[in-house]
Amino acid sequence: MESALEVEHEALHRAAPGQAEHGAALFDAVGDATLALLGPGLLTINLWRPDTREVVRQWSSDPAAYPVGGSKRKGDTPWTRQLLERTEVFVGEGDAALAEVFDDIATIRALGLRAVVNVPIGERGRCIGTFNYLSPRSAWQADEVETLRRLADLAAPAVAQCHARQAGPAREAG
């Protein structure tokens, strides 16, 4: 799996964002790499807005079920504290684990998804986004979680670009 990831990294490096369309191309490349390396599933890439406590979808491998621009408010939960506040990876396996953290469990079940890895994307020590991969598998292997961490790192420049655009000039100074 390491050599495949290195090949994908080279392709992604060539698509590095410098403009908005390059950010979209980077999301597409990371999405393609994720599905190629880990098999069928659902990948979403979100911005985190702590001021409104919302995650806002920037990219989706299934835009019919999870459209770009969709958002979810996140209350104070163990998942929120782990992923969005402490910037720690969350691994959920099985229906009960997913039902505990996701309000949209009916949609997740309908898609046949049974396990998730949520990777925080950080900037300057704080979470600015999330990289979320749900799969029909029942459990994750350590190397799969590490692969998802690396893929999230590759998506980070495009997430940072989206974050900067949405923050605007007044926030960028702070």
Rank of each mutant, 00 (worst) to 15 (best):
L12S: 09
Y133T: 04
G122R: 11
L151I: 02
G31Q: 01
V91Q: 10
D28I: 02
T147C: 14
L111R: 10
D103V: 05
M1H: 08
A110Q: 11
S3R: 15
A156V: 00
L26M: 13
A139G: 15
G69A: 15
V55M: 11
V56M: 04
V56E: 03
R114S: 01
E100A: 11
A160Y: 10
T130W: 11
K72N: 01
I128V: 13
R109I: 00
R171P: 00
T44P: 11
D28A: 14
G112M: 01
A16Y: 14
L154Y: 15
L113Y: 12
T87L: 15
A115C: 15
T87K: 03
L5K: 15
L37H: 08
S138E: 13
A167T: 06
T130H: 10
G122E: 13
A139C: 06
A155G: 03
F102S: 01
A65C: 14
H163C: 04
T77A: 05
P78M: 08
C127R: 13
G94H: 08
T87V: 07
P78I: 02
V119A: 12
D32C: 03
E93V: 10
R109V: 04
A160P: 00
R165G: 00
A29W: 14
A20L: 08
G69V: 11
A99M: 04
L154I: 01
P50E: 02
V159E: 02
L37Q: 09
I121E: 11
A97L: 03
A24C: 11
V7W: 10
T147Y: 10
A25I: 04
A65Q: 14
P136L: 08
P17W: 07
R73Q: 02
T80D: 02
R137Q: 14
T44S: 15
D95Q: 08
I128R: 01
R126A: 01
L154M: 14
A64W: 12
E93M: 11
A156S: 09
S60G: 13
T77G: 09
A139Y: 12
L5H: 09
I128Q: 02
G112P: 01
V119D: 14
C127S: 11
L37V: 03
W59E: 01
G39P: 08
L37Y: 13
A115R: 15
P120F: 03
Y133A: 12
A167S: 07
L37S: 11
A139W: 12
S61W: 13
H9P: 04
A4Y: 13
L12Q: 13
I108G: 06
P17G: 09
S61R: 07
Q161E: 03
V91R: 07
S3G: 05
D95M: 04
A115I: 00
D28L: 05
A167W: 14
G31C: 09
G23W: 13
R86W: 02
W48Y: 07
G125M: 01
D95A: 12
P120Y: 07
A20D: 10
I105D: 08
